[in-house]
Every structure is written in C-alpha cells, then in structure tokens.
Design a binder for these strands. Structure first.
Lengths: 189, 189
DNA sequence: CGCCGAGTTGAACTGAATCAAGAAACGTGG
DNA sequence: CCACGTTTCTTGATTCAGTTCAACTCGGCG
C-alpha cells in the first residue's frame, strides 16, 4: 500500500483489494525537483500523475504572457485533461513548484488496466467528476466576480493556495495583474 | 432506434446493439415547451437529458442578476453536472429557450443500467470528457480574453450561438453587460 | 392599439490595466 | 558567507475598457 492506493481506498472504501493491487503495480513512483516539467505545451500529454507530495501548476503561454491555469497539491491527480484523454497536443505546460513525489501511468497502460477490472473505469470516472465540478465552480467565479471578490473567495475556500503560491502565479490564475493583486492584499482596495 | 441511440452510435460506432437497446429502453421521451424548466436552482437535479431538438440554457441568480452559465443545443446531453452526479442541491436552473424534444433518465436508473453493461459506464465517461474539455476551453477564454476577443471567438467557433441566442443571455454568458455586447456588435469598439 | 421586455446609444464614472521606478527576496558562484 | 544579478513585490500616476445610469426605439404579444 503506497500513498496513491491509500488515498484511493480512503475515497472509495468499497474497492476490492485486487483492484488496488492492479493500480499499485501499474503506477510508477517518480521523484521530481522544483522546476522540472511534467509536460510541455504543444506535446501530447502521455501520462496521468498522482501527486503524493509537493505542489505543481499548469500554465499556458499566450501573447508572451504566462497564464497559470491550475494548481496541483498533495493528493491531486495531475494531467492535462484536454490532452491526455483524446491524446491531442496540449495547450498548457505543467511544472513542479516544489520538489515532489509522483506516481505516474501512461494512457496506454491505463486503458489496459481498465479492461482488467471494471471498477477502474469507475474510479477514473469518479475522480474526473470531482475535477469537472471544481472546474464548473471556478468558471462561475471567474465569470461573475470582481478581482477583490475572487481573492476573498480564495482566502476563504483555499487559504493554502495563498500561503504557498507566489503573487505572480496566483494573479494570472485569478485573471488579474500582479499589481492589482498586490493592492488587494495590502487592503488599499 | 431513436434520435438518442442514433447519435450515440454515431459517436461510439463500436457499441454492441444490446447496449443501445438498454439505453433506448431506459430513456423516456419528453416534449417541452419554450420557457419550461428542467431544473430549479436549489433543487437536486434528478435527471440527465439528451436534447434531440431545440435550445435550452442553464442560468443562475446571484445578487438579483440572471447569469447564463451554459447553452444546450441539438444532440447535447443536458444536466447540472455539479448537482446530478453527487445528487447535491443545484446552483443553477435549466430552462427551454425554444420548444424541444428530450430524452431523460434518472440518476437511479442510470446507476442501474451501468451495472447491466460495462460499456454504459464508458459511454458516460466519454461524453463527460467531452463536456469537461469544453469547460476547460471556456474557462481559459474567460480567464484571459477581453470582451471583444471573447465575442470574436464565439463568432468564429460557435456562430449558431450568435444567431439563435438573445443579446441578453449571450452577454451574461460572456461575462459582460448587454450594453457592451451591443456596442461590440455595432462595431463601435 | 398599447404595453413591456429587449436592444441601442450616449455620457459619466470606475475598477483594473499599464507604465514606471524603487525595494525586497532569492539563488548562484566565488 | 557574502556579493551580485535576477526576479518578484510594492507603490504611485495615468489611461482605458467596460460598467452604470438614463433616455429612446423597436418589435412582439395580449
């Protein structure tokens, strides 16, 4: 039992031991240093990762600007959804913001083990749904809230994000400039 | 073979006839008039719909404002993802913008037929993924583009949306005001 | 025919971006 | 462990995209 299977068992307690064993043997442990890339924009995302420890972010270049699209923390599954599932070129890169421990599996191998146990399909489905729900919420917030409101929501709902993420990365994630975020933080607004 | 199963077969040609037959018998056809609701904000979304014909939208009230969060067209699956899958209260309503034909299935029944054939789990997975990819793209656009850019992207990628959706609904969907959209349209900007 | 919601246009206002410059934090190599 | 260059953060002044408020037009429905 490693970090990955322990986490899955926690979230889906009814899973058979056999399924967890298949998962355990299909994922490969990997240590990454701060700054290392999991994916480069334009490439096809070949792997799905589970982040057992550390922080990473996905980001995209557009008109010379570096836009953070997502943060990954401990116990998150990490991939470029839009690239990994259809195996299409990715519009984003993924990099480590700290050293970290990951477990990875290729698209190919994932498809194989889905055939070995039906519950694996269901497990993927389950974690995908969690991700989609997060996306929906984030979209709604970005669509309808002002800069200050967005910051306050993060402060309430994801304070760890404010503690561990640089101003620069957080501001582009919120869709505002560094300067604005800095001003909001110092309470001038 | 109805509109729903014909569409699924088109997108997933390898599915066994047996699976399509299960799906066919599990969904119920329903006609809806313009203005009718599929879901009310605050309720738990009990059904997944397939829209065989017509247009609908999901929307949310916040501070007295009506924000459109999604449009559904012919051949789209319609539900409040965040409500339907975990069976939690919905933050959005869904209403018909035109008369339309739908096929519906309850969460309960869906879980039942998932057990009857593994491919159904996979089918759900497939269409969920398409939705998630759309969400990701939309989030990225909203996060990083100006009002005019967003309008132009819609013009290029989803022109049917501009033809069939009112200014009022489209503007809130883009996260801008009616007036701004009107000005962009008349090319003053 | 008259009303009401939707769309348009204008003027004033404002939240946030941009531009700029200095201060603090960080990493790297000597 | 310090010195240096690089990047990030902060703060201020200015500009601008988009909102708000308001008045008017248009089209459809009862």
């Amino acid at each position: 039992m490693n970090d990955l299977t322990a986490y899955i068992k926690l979230k889906m307690p009814h899973l058979r031991g056999e399924v967890l064993r298949i998962i355990d043997s299909a994922f490969q442990k990997e240590e990454k240093k701060k700054g290392e890339r999991l994916l480069n924009q334009g490439d096809v995302c070949r792997n799905l990762y589970f982040l057992a420890n550390g922080i990473c972010r996905s980001f995209s270049f557009r008109n010379g600007a570096d836009i953070t699209t997502w943060f990954g923390f401990k116990d998150d599954f990490i991939t470029s959804f839009t690239s990994f599932f259809p195996q299409a070129p990715s519009y984003e890169s993924i990099e480590m913001l700290t050293d970290g421990t990951l477990y990875k599996i290729s698209r190919q191998r994932l498809i194989e083990i889905q055939k070995e146990a039906i519950e694996i399909e269901r497990t993927i489905n389950f974690f995908s749904s969690l991700y989609t729900i997060q996306l929906e919420k984030r979209l709604f917030v970005i669509q309808t809230h002002s800069a200050t409101e967005k910051y306050k929501l993060i402060l309430e709902d994801q304070p760890h994000l404010i503690q561990s993420i640089s101003n620069k990365h957080l501001s582009s994630y919120l869709g505002i400039t560094r300067e604005t975020l800095s001003r909001i933080r110092s309470g001038i607004n």
